[in-house]
Design a protein around this nucleic acid. Structure first.
Lengths: 347, 347
DNA sequence: CCTTACTTTTGGAACGATCCAAATTTACCC
DNA sequence: GGGTAAATTTGGATCGTTCCAAAAGTAAGG
């Protein structure tokens, strides 16, 4: 009984309707579990759905209902384990809620970021989670995403005219406090000449961490020499390359607060190359607590930021925003936790 | 001149048409850059598009054209740097081609994998890239994705009735040859008692690597003791926990081929806890060449699989499949490269 | 059997784009 | 100016779903 499912073409709601002699509207009600439909009819329709292997076309439904079932997630560096964990956390929560994650990665290029945002917007996401590339401009981003779609800024502030974007929600780490904790820890260990190593001073997170470092140094009455503030790209490679600059002067530091774990691990390599053993001849701290931090030699003292939990939190924040689009914009600053390991030895 | 853009509601093609007194069809032609439309008209329409801040609704277009502009990417473990790099590679290529990546992560749960696939299918992706969770069943996956959408299986074979899925494309690493290379290298270093450490023997990649290991051992005429084949979950934590089992017997190995880098790094920790120094008292190799491998102490001899390039390749394979849906299914096995570092010392 | 109230089902018009065949305008030549 | 060909533009149907108001069916009460 019943005719065969269509070949090649996708099975639609009309096929089901025809297959069990009801109207399209009824099938639609069944699909959405409406209590209006009769028990027998429901059973008949459900059987037919199975028989023909129907798959729901959410795009068509979204079109009609003027809704959306996706969230765009745009990251400046997906390959970075920190963001990968973050993405996993986001996807975990969104998946449970029936949303689908539209992924975009900008590879730290603002140009690409705008292109990716533009392309994702065409798919009409309900919201956007953006960890912006360094040097991005608020107004350009705004014009790429439009004023309609709620956006959650993660991890970094953007440059340019912030007034235009004060309706965005924000989720940041407490960079300043984290760096202060690390610095205070090194001071407590007995260090007096402490450097701040790595990061681009133009990025907001680097500025904040530097501020925390300086706070702690000033509070302890310790001086900061200008050549102790060394800039480098926030990755291992450049951190190795620039590490000599810490020792270019004769008042070399005995410890360093590093911009993040990648930089710290790079600096460790650089120290080895100079014949210094990190954790014995030189103390250092990181930031992020990436997986490698616990197993490096020596294990790295760092600040745990639990990126997966941040991802979950970001997803929840954007979902809340969708619930209540008119609520006041919200800025969340999450605390970070100092993990003391062997790399932060006494002088 | 011109009326104001609509408030609240999204700007549609009809708004533009009304705004500059042409038909919807003409605007549509302009959007798609058709050579049919007159230069002046095009300019007028484009001006209006800008003025009203129009954003293309790709879902609507896809509905009408019965096309799709997304690819589903379902990974068993996004938090793993290997897959994160892979995802970054996929997204890089897809983004350039105008496709959007629908991300899903199964966290190594086959149940969740099926749920995620089901949810993504409702968005009608043009293709699927799947790195299956361990223990997945071919027929269940097939019934979740249907027979219409091309699927590229990455990294792992699935269990169950493979005949049902012989139309899927496949992209695998040459696990067998990789493990053989690593084993041969340890043998060349002078080791005779070599273990294979880690992984679940039920997973296809573990089986293949074990085969490669055994090939090399047999070819060299070396015996394999049963307690040298130690199973553990493919992560660092379990690798530490199980490491004692290598030394439970009195014919303990002097070297180990590890299932992957995470396991190898865990084993290193386990060795330290026993008072053995990896790279001096015990030799070991990994698999994957994750970022940590180069900076561990000692640096880890391993097999480079260049996950980002694999991601790019996967994206290209699926795009080719979309070009020619009827071509014969294709299985690609990519070679891996042995990177010798300090962890694989002589006995 | 007729009312009334309730349950269940149903056409047909949306949603925002594209396709197609046909209509309109423009250009050109004698 | 008339005729033909080419260049442009255009209604209206359509993709697969949901909404809505109205129709059809069912049961109970008089």
């Amino acid at each position: 009984m019943g005719n065969t499912p269509p070949v090649g073409r996708k099975v639609t709601l009309s096929d089901i309707a025809a297959g069990c002699d009801v109207s399209r509207a009824t099938v639609s009600l069944v699909l959405r579990g409406s209590p209006l439909v009769n028990k027998n009819t429901r059973a008949r329709v459900e059987e037919e759905l199975r028989r023909q292997g129907y798959v729901y076309n959410r795009a068509a439904a979204n079109l009609r209902r003027r809704t959306s079932s996706s969230i765009a997630l745009v990251l400046n560096d997906l390959a970075n384990p920190f963001f990968a964990e973050f993405a996993a956390g986001v996807d975990e929560v969104l998946g449970d809620t029936g949303y689908v994650t539209l992924l975009g990665s900008s590879s730290e290029s603002t140009e690409r970021e705008l292109a990716v945002l533009g392309s994702l917007m065409e798919h009409g996401p309900a919201g956007i989670i953006l960890s912006p590339a360094e040097g991005g401009d608020a107004e350009q981003i705004l014009s790429a995403v439009g004023g309609q779609t709620p956006l959650l800024l993660f991890n970094r502030e953007v440059g340019g005219d912030l007034a235009a974007c004060d309706h965005w929600d924000r989720l940041f780490l407490d960079n300043q406090r984290g760096a202060r904790l690390a610095t205070e820890h090194l001071i407590a260990q007995g260090h007096k000449r402490i450097a701040f190593y790595g990061g681009h001073s133009s990025s907001s997170s680097c500025k904040q961490r530097r501020t925390g470092y300086m706070d702690a140094m000033h509070a302890a009455g310790l001086p900061i020499e200008t050549h102790w503030m060394v800039e480098c790209a926030p990755n291992r490679l450049d951190a190795v390359a620039q590490s000599d600059r810490l020792f270019a002067n004769n008042s070399a530091p005995t410890a360093a607060v590093c911009y993040n774990d990648a930089v710290a691990l790079g600096l460790m390599l650089g120290l080895h190359q100079r014949g210094l053993q990190p954790g014995r001849d030189f103390a250092l701290t990181g930031f992020d607590d990436i997986a490698e931090a616990a197993v490096s030699a020596p294990p790295l003292t760092t600040l745990a930021v639990t990126p997966r939990a941040r991802g979950r939190q970001a997803a929840e924040l954007i979902l809340q925003r969708l619930q209540d689009p008119s609520a006041a914009p919200r800025q969340t600053i999450v605390p970070v936790q100092l993990l003391v390991r062997a790399s932060s030895c006494p002088p």
